[in-house]
Amino acid sequence: MIIRIEPDSDIPIYIQLTNQIIEGIAKGDLKPGEFLPSVRAFAADLGVNMHTVNKSYHELEKKGIIEIVPKSGAVIKRHSHIDQEAYERLYQMLKPQIAEGLVLGIEKEELVDLIEKIINEMKKNS
């Protein structure tokens, strides 16, 4: 899978990395059980500081998406059903976004369509 970073963007590099890895997993380009490259290799390939990659990996671990196994690396976890904690987090994350949409005049049906569109984008390959 190819990850593309824009160093000059307003979005910090570690967030770009995190988002693209999550998207890669959602799209099926990266599969549960697979290992992500080592922090050093990843940083060397991108030519960025190791802290940047480390920060992104810790972010992913905090979200429960990967597990950092000492000495072997970062492995992508398998999830069959969303747990209560993650559900709560998503709820809190989506709330202001949906509120913004409603204020800007989006209809309930349009909102549902929008979510479906994003899901289809992710499942295009599988």
């Binding site: 190819i2 970073i5 000059d8 890669g24 990266l30 490259p37 390939d45 991108l46």
Partner: peptide, 12 residues
């Protein structure tokens, strides 16, 4: 042009 850098996660 916009400057981008890429990495292939599975290149190794």
């Amino acid at each position: 042009m916009k400057q981008v850098s890429v990495v292939d996660v599975s290149v190794r």
